[in-house]
């Protein structure tokens, strides 16, 4: 596998130096692996800190800025960051109004953020956590590590970030983050395996002419393998899997997310099919976002995330945001 890297050991640090050079709105501590919005701490504002393994760019560093995250902590590729990073980030962005940790539901992320929350509170920072677990492909969630956090992370970070920017107190920001997670579901498919820099070869073997249904974002295989399907068939399958679980009674925000190696041309074509299924099922798409936002290195494929919204959540979604990967309204 050819990769645009120097050596596997430095891919995260190299990318952080590149992010720093491209985005003057961010302060990047390459050594300690913390990305902070330049004007933090913002007086009186609740701070939002997230983080997770690298390899999902632009998540999370690409969502740092006014209207979204205060700081992000990138770990090694597909490996949760360590508690020191979150503690450092929390200290850097806390204005005294408290910090919300946004944690994707993976065992490693949960354990490290939990340790970090304890350490940060020892240092006098008020911390609460919200868990993102939107992936309906994980069934039997009582007998597993539970549903994974995927596309809904973007919704939680954007909508809770807007509430924090407006000056909402910590309990309110936390409640909004929770309600967004509870109103969101995702389903993903892979058209190719993923190759991590450390391993250098695909993490699973996907023969030509087949696809994986119900994948996560770490190259872990999905639950089921089938002969290749058309965009129309995949949209039917993925949207129905989400709707069956979500059963929305109102309009939704749609995220059609690329896994990294699927061209936008294909993603837009897939979005047309997603919109068709939604309208056939009588679901109104209030807003739609198409692009590579929660990726899995070089994996081909996509995910669909729906978030049921009321007027308030939709207003917060539309509120101004200014980050490397999402920006509108300013």
């Amino acid at each position: 596998m050819r990769m645009l890297i120097n050596v596997p050991e430095t891919v995260v640090a190299d990318a952080l130096r590149g992010i720093a050079a491209a985005h003057p709105g961010l302060t990047v501590d390459v050594e300690n692996r913390v990305v902070v919005r330049r004007d933090a701490p913002v007086a009186g504002k609740v701070a939002l800190v997230s983080g997770g393994g690298s390899g999902h760019e632009p998540l999370h560093a690409g969502f740092v800025g006014p209207g979204m995250l205060s700081a992000a902590c990138p770990g090694e590729v597909f490996t949760s960051p360590v508690p020191d990073q979150m503690v450092r980030a929390a200290a850097a962005v806390d204005s005294g109004a408290g910090v919300l940790f946004i944690v994707k539901n993976y065992t490693g992320d949960v354990l490290n953020f939990e340790m970090a929350a304890e350490l940060a509170e020892d240092e006098g920072v008020q911390v609460t956590q919200v868990l993102v677990n939107d992936d309906v492909a994980v069934t039997d969630s009582l007998f597993t590590a539970g549903r994974r956090g995927t596309g809904a992370t973007l919704f939680v970070e954007k909508i809770a970030g807007a509430a924090a920017e407006e000056g909402a107190p910590l309990e309110r920001v936390e409640a909004i983050a929770r309600s967004v997670n509870e109103a969101s579901r995702s389903f993903g498919v892979a058209l190719s395996a993923v190759t991590t820099p450390a391993k250098g070869s695909p993490t699973f073997d996907l023969p030509p002419g087949e696809l994986e249904l119900g994948i996560g974002i770490h190259g872990e295989p999905g639950r089921e393998r089938r002969p290749m399907m058309t965009s129309r068939e995949i949209a039917d399958f993925a949207v129905d899997a989400v709707l069956e679980d979500l059963r929305p009674r109102g309009p939704v925000i749609v995220l059609v997310n690329g896994m990294g190696a699927t061209p936008l041309l294909e993603l837009y074509g897939f979005n047309a099919e997603v919109q068709r299924v939604l309208s056939e099922r009588g679901v109104v798409a209030a807003r739609t976002l198409v692009g590579n936002y929660v990726t899995s290195l070089d994996m081909a494929g996509c995910s669909v995330t729906l978030c049921q919204v009321d007027e308030e959540l939709l207003r917060l979604w539309d509120a101004p945001v200014e980050t490397p990967a999402l920006r509108w309204g300013r």
Binding site: G53, G75, E76, T79, S80, P81, V82, P83, D84, Y106, T107, G108, L111, N112, E114, M115
Partner: peptide, 12 residues
């Protein structure tokens, strides 16, 4: 290990 490993393995 907690400070350098990350993932679930670090804390565990």
């Amino acid at each position: 290990l907690i400070a350098t490993v990350g993932g679930a393995s670090g804390p565990l």
